[in-house]
Design a protein around this nucleic acid. Structure first.
Lengths: 151, 151
DNA sequence: CTATATGCAAATAGTTTGCCTGTTA
DNA sequence: TAACAGGCAAACTATTTGCATATAG
Protein backbone atom coordinates (compact mmCIF):
# COMPACT_ATOMS: atom_id res chain seq x y z
CA UNK A 1 0.00 0.00 0.00
CA UNK A 2 1.27 3.44 -0.83
CA UNK A 3 1.98 5.64 2.12
CA UNK A 4 1.90 8.99 0.31
CA UNK A 5 -1.26 11.05 -0.13
CA UNK A 6 -3.57 10.04 -2.99
CA UNK A 7 -2.53 11.62 -6.27
CA UNK A 8 -3.90 15.09 -6.75
CA UNK A 9 -6.57 15.54 -9.35
CA UNK A 10 -4.02 17.34 -11.46
CA UNK A 11 -1.75 14.31 -11.64
CA UNK A 12 -4.58 12.23 -12.94
CA UNK A 13 -5.46 14.76 -15.58
CA UNK A 14 -1.88 14.97 -16.74
CA UNK A 15 -1.57 11.23 -16.92
CA UNK A 16 -4.77 10.78 -18.89
CA UNK A 17 -3.93 13.51 -21.33
CA UNK A 18 -0.49 12.09 -21.93
CA UNK A 19 -1.80 8.58 -22.35
CA UNK A 20 -3.91 9.90 -25.18
CA UNK A 21 -1.01 11.76 -26.75
CA UNK A 22 -1.91 15.26 -25.60
CA UNK A 23 0.35 17.75 -23.92
CA UNK A 24 -0.70 19.22 -20.64
CA UNK A 25 -1.35 22.91 -21.02
CA UNK A 26 -2.67 25.44 -18.53
CA UNK A 27 -5.72 25.91 -20.76
CA UNK A 28 -6.62 22.23 -20.77
CA UNK A 29 -6.27 21.95 -17.02
CA UNK A 30 -8.27 25.13 -16.57
CA UNK A 31 -11.10 24.04 -18.84
CA UNK A 32 -11.28 20.79 -16.92
CA UNK A 33 -11.36 22.59 -13.58
CA UNK A 34 -14.05 24.88 -14.93
CA UNK A 35 -16.19 21.88 -15.83
CA UNK A 36 -15.75 20.31 -12.39
CA UNK A 37 -16.73 23.54 -10.69
CA UNK A 38 -20.38 23.42 -11.71
CA UNK A 39 -21.62 20.13 -13.09
CA UNK A 40 -24.57 21.43 -15.01
CA UNK A 41 -23.80 20.21 -18.52
CA UNK A 42 -22.60 23.54 -19.90
CA UNK A 43 -22.24 24.28 -23.59
CA UNK A 44 -18.85 25.14 -25.07
CA UNK A 45 -19.84 28.77 -24.86
CA UNK A 46 -20.82 28.46 -21.19
CA UNK A 47 -17.43 26.95 -20.51
CA UNK A 48 -15.75 29.73 -22.45
CA UNK A 49 -17.49 32.43 -20.43
CA UNK A 50 -16.73 30.74 -17.12
CA UNK A 51 -13.14 29.94 -18.03
CA UNK A 52 -12.52 33.52 -19.13
CA UNK A 53 -13.24 34.82 -15.65
CA UNK A 54 -9.92 33.53 -14.38
CA UNK A 55 -8.08 33.15 -17.68
CA UNK A 56 -9.17 36.21 -19.65
CA UNK A 57 -7.09 35.51 -22.75
CA UNK A 58 -8.47 32.08 -23.49
CA UNK A 59 -10.22 31.84 -26.83
CA UNK A 60 -13.27 29.96 -28.03
CA UNK A 61 -11.17 27.89 -30.43
CA UNK A 62 -8.99 26.82 -27.53
CA UNK A 63 -12.00 25.87 -25.48
CA UNK A 64 -13.12 23.58 -28.30
CA UNK A 65 -9.62 22.16 -28.61
CA UNK A 66 -9.44 21.53 -24.86
CA UNK A 67 -12.88 19.95 -24.73
CA UNK A 68 -11.94 17.65 -27.59
CA UNK A 69 -8.71 16.65 -25.88
CA UNK A 70 -10.56 15.97 -22.63
CA UNK A 71 -13.22 13.92 -24.38
CA UNK A 72 -10.60 11.89 -26.22
CA UNK A 73 -8.77 11.38 -22.94
CA UNK A 74 -11.92 10.03 -21.31
CA UNK A 75 -12.04 12.80 -18.76
CA UNK A 76 -15.20 14.36 -20.11
CA UNK A 77 -18.33 13.10 -21.84
CA UNK A 78 -19.98 14.86 -24.70
CA UNK A 79 -23.75 15.13 -24.35
CA UNK A 80 -25.94 15.90 -27.31
CA UNK A 81 -29.64 15.24 -27.28
CA UNK A 82 -31.39 17.86 -29.32
CA UNK A 83 -30.66 20.40 -32.02
CA UNK A 84 -29.09 22.79 -29.55
CA UNK A 85 -25.42 23.17 -28.74
CA UNK A 86 -23.40 20.21 -27.54
CA UNK A 87 -22.97 19.97 -23.80
CA UNK A 88 -20.11 18.59 -21.70
CA UNK A 89 -20.13 16.49 -18.58
CA UNK A 90 -17.07 15.74 -16.42
CA UNK A 91 -18.84 12.95 -14.52
CA UNK A 92 -17.20 9.77 -15.75
CA UNK A 93 -18.68 7.52 -13.07
CA UNK A 94 -21.18 5.23 -14.73
CA UNK A 95 -24.36 7.20 -14.79
CA UNK A 96 -27.32 7.85 -16.99
CA UNK A 97 -29.19 10.89 -18.25
CA UNK A 98 -32.62 12.39 -18.07
CA UNK A 99 -33.52 14.85 -20.82
CA UNK A 100 -36.46 17.18 -20.40
CA UNK A 101 -38.81 17.29 -23.37
CA UNK A 102 -39.93 20.81 -22.54
CA UNK A 103 -36.89 22.81 -21.45
CA UNK A 104 -34.22 20.61 -22.99
CA UNK A 105 -32.30 20.31 -19.72
CA UNK A 106 -29.96 17.39 -19.10
CA UNK A 107 -29.74 15.77 -15.67
CA UNK A 108 -27.48 13.05 -14.33
CA UNK A 109 -29.18 9.95 -12.99
CA UNK A 110 -27.00 7.83 -10.76
CA UNK A 111 -27.08 4.15 -11.23
CA UNK A 112 -29.08 2.52 -8.48
CA UNK A 113 -27.52 -0.34 -6.53
CA UNK A 114 -30.13 -2.80 -7.77
CA UNK A 115 -29.57 -2.00 -11.38
CA UNK A 116 -28.83 -4.99 -13.55
CA UNK A 117 -27.00 -4.70 -16.79
CA UNK A 118 -29.63 -4.69 -19.55
CA UNK A 119 -29.41 -7.54 -22.04
CA UNK A 120 -29.51 -6.34 -25.62
CA UNK A 121 -29.21 -8.45 -28.75
CA UNK A 122 -26.39 -6.64 -30.43
CA UNK A 123 -25.84 -8.03 -33.92
CA UNK A 124 -22.60 -9.79 -34.82
CA UNK A 125 -19.69 -7.61 -35.75
CA UNK A 126 -20.48 -4.72 -33.47
CA UNK A 127 -17.89 -4.16 -30.77
CA UNK A 128 -19.73 -2.56 -27.85
CA UNK A 129 -17.62 -0.71 -25.35
CA UNK A 130 -20.03 1.03 -22.98
CA UNK A 131 -23.67 1.95 -22.66
CA UNK A 132 -25.91 4.45 -21.00
CA UNK A 133 -29.62 4.70 -20.40
CA UNK A 134 -31.40 7.77 -21.63
CA UNK A 135 -34.71 8.68 -20.04
CA UNK A 136 -36.94 11.38 -21.43
CA UNK A 137 -39.95 13.13 -19.98
CA UNK A 138 -40.44 16.21 -17.84
CA UNK A 139 -37.95 17.55 -15.33
CA UNK A 140 -39.28 18.58 -11.91
CA UNK A 141 -39.67 22.26 -12.82
CA UNK A 142 -41.44 21.61 -16.09
CA UNK A 143 -43.62 18.91 -14.53
CA UNK A 144 -44.72 21.35 -11.83
CA UNK A 145 -45.48 23.98 -14.43
CA UNK A 146 -47.50 21.49 -16.49
CA UNK A 147 -49.67 20.68 -13.45
CA UNK A 148 -50.36 24.38 -12.90
CA UNK A 149 -51.54 24.84 -16.47
CA UNK A 150 -54.13 22.11 -15.96
CA UNK A 151 -55.38 23.49 -12.65
CA UNK B 1 -64.70 -5.37 -36.09
CA UNK B 2 -64.17 -3.24 -39.14
CA UNK B 3 -64.65 -5.06 -42.40
CA UNK B 4 -62.68 -2.64 -44.54
CA UNK B 5 -58.97 -2.96 -45.20
CA UNK B 6 -56.62 -1.84 -42.43
CA UNK B 7 -56.09 1.92 -42.51
CA UNK B 8 -53.45 2.98 -44.97
CA UNK B 9 -50.29 4.43 -43.59
CA UNK B 10 -51.53 7.78 -44.79
CA UNK B 11 -54.56 7.65 -42.52
CA UNK B 12 -52.37 7.10 -39.53
CA UNK B 13 -50.10 9.97 -40.42
CA UNK B 14 -53.04 12.28 -40.89
CA UNK B 15 -54.54 11.29 -37.57
CA UNK B 16 -51.31 11.74 -35.65
CA UNK B 17 -50.59 15.10 -37.18
CA UNK B 18 -54.08 16.32 -36.45
CA UNK B 19 -53.99 15.03 -32.90
CA UNK B 20 -50.96 17.23 -32.40
CA UNK B 21 -52.61 20.26 -33.98
CA UNK B 22 -50.86 20.13 -37.34
CA UNK B 23 -52.45 20.32 -40.75
CA UNK B 24 -51.75 17.57 -43.19
CA UNK B 25 -49.84 18.91 -46.13
CA UNK B 26 -48.38 17.13 -49.12
CA UNK B 27 -44.92 18.17 -47.95
CA UNK B 28 -45.33 16.62 -44.51
CA UNK B 29 -46.61 13.36 -45.93
CA UNK B 30 -43.83 13.36 -48.49
CA UNK B 31 -41.08 13.98 -45.96
CA UNK B 32 -42.46 11.15 -43.88
CA UNK B 33 -42.56 8.80 -46.87
CA UNK B 34 -39.01 9.83 -47.72
CA UNK B 35 -37.87 8.85 -44.26
CA UNK B 36 -39.59 5.47 -44.44
CA UNK B 37 -38.01 4.73 -47.79
CA UNK B 38 -34.49 4.32 -46.46
CA UNK B 39 -34.12 3.97 -42.74
CA UNK B 40 -30.55 5.07 -42.39
CA UNK B 41 -30.85 8.00 -40.00
CA UNK B 42 -30.51 10.75 -42.59
CA UNK B 43 -29.72 14.34 -41.74
CA UNK B 44 -32.19 17.10 -42.60
CA UNK B 45 -30.14 17.82 -45.67
CA UNK B 46 -30.18 14.17 -46.76
CA UNK B 47 -33.95 14.24 -46.44
CA UNK B 48 -34.09 17.47 -48.40
CA UNK B 49 -32.07 16.00 -51.27
CA UNK B 50 -34.10 12.80 -51.36
CA UNK B 51 -37.43 14.57 -51.04
CA UNK B 52 -36.54 16.97 -53.85
CA UNK B 53 -36.26 14.11 -56.32
CA UNK B 54 -40.02 13.73 -56.46
CA UNK B 55 -41.04 17.14 -55.09
CA UNK B 56 -38.59 19.53 -56.68
CA UNK B 57 -40.02 22.71 -55.20
CA UNK B 58 -39.72 21.69 -51.57
CA UNK B 59 -37.44 23.96 -49.57
CA UNK B 60 -35.00 23.29 -46.76
CA UNK B 61 -37.06 25.40 -44.36
CA UNK B 62 -40.08 23.26 -45.14
CA UNK B 63 -38.11 20.09 -44.53
CA UNK B 64 -37.21 21.39 -41.08
CA UNK B 65 -40.80 22.39 -40.45
CA UNK B 66 -42.04 18.96 -41.54
CA UNK B 67 -39.48 17.11 -39.46
CA UNK B 68 -40.45 19.17 -36.43
CA UNK B 69 -44.12 18.46 -36.98
CA UNK B 70 -43.41 14.73 -37.37
CA UNK B 71 -41.27 14.65 -34.25
CA UNK B 72 -43.92 16.47 -32.25
CA UNK B 73 -46.54 14.08 -33.59
CA UNK B 74 -44.49 11.09 -32.44
CA UNK B 75 -44.03 9.76 -35.92
CA UNK B 76 -40.32 10.39 -36.03
CA UNK B 77 -37.48 10.38 -33.51
CA UNK B 78 -34.70 12.88 -33.50
CA UNK B 79 -31.26 11.36 -33.06
CA UNK B 80 -28.34 13.45 -31.98
CA UNK B 81 -25.22 11.92 -30.57
CA UNK B 82 -22.24 14.00 -31.62
CA UNK B 83 -21.45 17.48 -32.86
CA UNK B 84 -22.60 16.65 -36.36
CA UNK B 85 -26.00 17.37 -37.87
CA UNK B 86 -29.12 16.01 -36.23
CA UNK B 87 -30.48 12.80 -37.71
CA UNK B 88 -34.01 11.51 -38.02
CA UNK B 89 -35.44 8.05 -37.51
CA UNK B 90 -38.98 6.97 -38.41
CA UNK B 91 -38.75 3.75 -36.40
CA UNK B 92 -41.06 4.31 -33.44
CA UNK B 93 -41.08 0.70 -32.28
CA UNK B 94 -39.22 0.51 -29.01
CA UNK B 95 -35.62 0.12 -30.01
CA UNK B 96 -32.19 1.24 -28.98
CA UNK B 97 -29.17 2.72 -30.68
CA UNK B 98 -25.57 1.86 -31.31
CA UNK B 99 -23.27 4.78 -32.10
CA UNK B 100 -19.90 4.17 -33.66
CA UNK B 101 -17.03 5.99 -31.96
CA UNK B 102 -14.99 6.05 -35.13
CA UNK B 103 -17.33 6.83 -38.04
CA UNK B 104 -20.16 8.39 -36.06
CA UNK B 105 -22.76 6.10 -37.64
CA UNK B 106 -26.03 5.37 -35.85
CA UNK B 107 -27.59 1.91 -35.95
CA UNK B 108 -30.89 0.61 -34.63
CA UNK B 109 -30.71 -2.20 -32.10
CA UNK B 110 -33.93 -4.11 -31.69
CA UNK B 111 -35.03 -4.95 -28.23
CA UNK B 112 -34.40 -8.61 -27.51
CA UNK B 113 -37.27 -10.71 -26.16
CA UNK B 114 -35.45 -11.37 -22.90
CA UNK B 115 -34.84 -7.74 -22.17
CA UNK B 116 -36.05 -6.60 -18.80
CA UNK B 117 -36.86 -3.02 -18.10
CA UNK B 118 -33.84 -1.53 -16.36
CA UNK B 119 -34.46 -0.18 -12.87
CA UNK B 120 -33.15 3.32 -12.37
CA UNK B 121 -33.48 5.47 -9.28
CA UNK B 122 -35.04 8.51 -10.81
CA UNK B 123 -35.25 11.30 -8.23
CA UNK B 124 -38.61 12.62 -7.06
CA UNK B 125 -40.26 15.17 -9.25
CA UNK B 126 -39.08 13.85 -12.58
CA UNK B 127 -41.83 12.56 -14.81
CA UNK B 128 -40.25 9.88 -16.99
CA UNK B 129 -42.09 9.03 -20.18
CA UNK B 130 -39.82 6.73 -22.16
CA UNK B 131 -36.27 5.48 -22.26
CA UNK B 132 -33.73 4.10 -24.64
CA UNK B 133 -30.41 2.36 -24.24
CA UNK B 134 -27.45 3.87 -26.02
CA UNK B 135 -24.49 1.63 -26.74
CA UNK B 136 -21.20 2.97 -28.03
CA UNK B 137 -18.20 1.24 -29.50
CA UNK B 138 -17.20 0.22 -33.00
CA UNK B 139 -19.58 -0.65 -35.80
CA UNK B 140 -18.81 -3.79 -37.85
CA UNK B 141 -16.98 -1.89 -40.60
CA UNK B 142 -14.83 0.13 -38.24
CA UNK B 143 -14.14 -2.89 -36.03
CA UNK B 144 -12.93 -4.84 -39.08
CA UNK B 145 -10.74 -1.95 -40.12
CA UNK B 146 -9.27 -1.70 -36.60
CA UNK B 147 -8.30 -5.38 -36.69
CA UNK B 148 -6.52 -4.86 -40.01
CA UNK B 149 -4.46 -2.01 -38.64
CA UNK B 150 -3.17 -4.26 -35.88
CA UNK B 151 -2.35 -7.15 -38.23
C1' DC C 1 -62.43 32.80 -45.39
C1' DT C 2 -58.78 32.62 -42.07
C1' DA C 3 -55.25 30.43 -39.71
C1' DT C 4 -51.53 27.94 -40.89
C1' DA C 5 -47.92 26.32 -44.06
C1' DT C 6 -44.76 27.04 -47.93
C1' DG C 7 -40.74 29.00 -50.38
C1' DC C 8 -37.23 32.03 -50.65
C1' DA C 9 -33.53 34.62 -48.92
C1' DA C 10 -31.28 36.60 -45.31
C1' DA C 11 -29.89 36.05 -40.53
C1' DT C 12 -28.05 33.54 -36.69
C1' DA C 13 -25.88 29.86 -33.94
C1' DG C 14 -22.47 26.52 -33.46
C1' DT C 15 -18.19 24.80 -34.83
C1' DT C 16 -13.95 24.46 -37.59
C1' DT C 17 -9.95 26.17 -39.94
C1' DG C 18 -5.75 28.80 -41.35
C1' DC C 19 -2.13 31.20 -40.09
C1' DC C 20 1.16 33.06 -37.34
C1' DT C 21 3.15 33.16 -32.67
C1' DG C 22 4.08 31.03 -28.22
C1' DT C 23 5.05 26.97 -25.29
C1' DT C 24 5.82 22.21 -23.90
C1' DA C 25 8.54 18.19 -23.54
C1' DT D 1 14.31 23.04 -30.90
C1' DA D 2 10.79 20.56 -33.14
C1' DA D 3 6.22 19.35 -32.72
C1' DC D 4 2.29 20.75 -30.75
C1' DA D 5 -0.98 24.24 -28.74
C1' DG D 6 -2.95 28.95 -28.39
C1' DG D 7 -5.18 33.22 -30.16
C1' DC D 8 -7.53 35.63 -33.55
C1' DA D 9 -10.42 36.18 -37.38
C1' DA D 10 -12.45 34.33 -41.21
C1' DA D 11 -14.93 30.39 -43.14
C1' DC D 12 -18.26 26.99 -42.92
C1' DT D 13 -22.25 24.14 -41.63
C1' DA D 14 -26.55 23.57 -39.45
C1' DT D 15 -30.62 25.71 -38.27
C1' DT D 16 -33.93 29.56 -37.73
C1' DT D 17 -36.50 33.58 -39.07
C1' DG D 18 -39.19 37.21 -41.68
C1' DC D 19 -42.08 38.01 -45.07
C1' DA D 20 -45.04 37.56 -49.13
C1' DT D 21 -47.87 34.06 -51.28
C1' DA D 22 -50.47 29.82 -51.32
C1' DT D 23 -53.51 26.29 -49.33
C1' DA D 24 -55.95 23.19 -45.87
C1' DG D 25 -59.86 22.88 -43.21
Amino acid sequence: MRTSAPPALEDDVVRRLEESGFRTTPQRAHVYRTLLEKRDHPTAEDVFIRAKRTMPDISMATVYNCLDALVQSNLVRLVSHDRGATRYCPNMKRHHHFYCDRCGGAFDIDEGPSMSRPRLDIPDGFQPDRYEIVVRGLCPDCAARAVKLHA
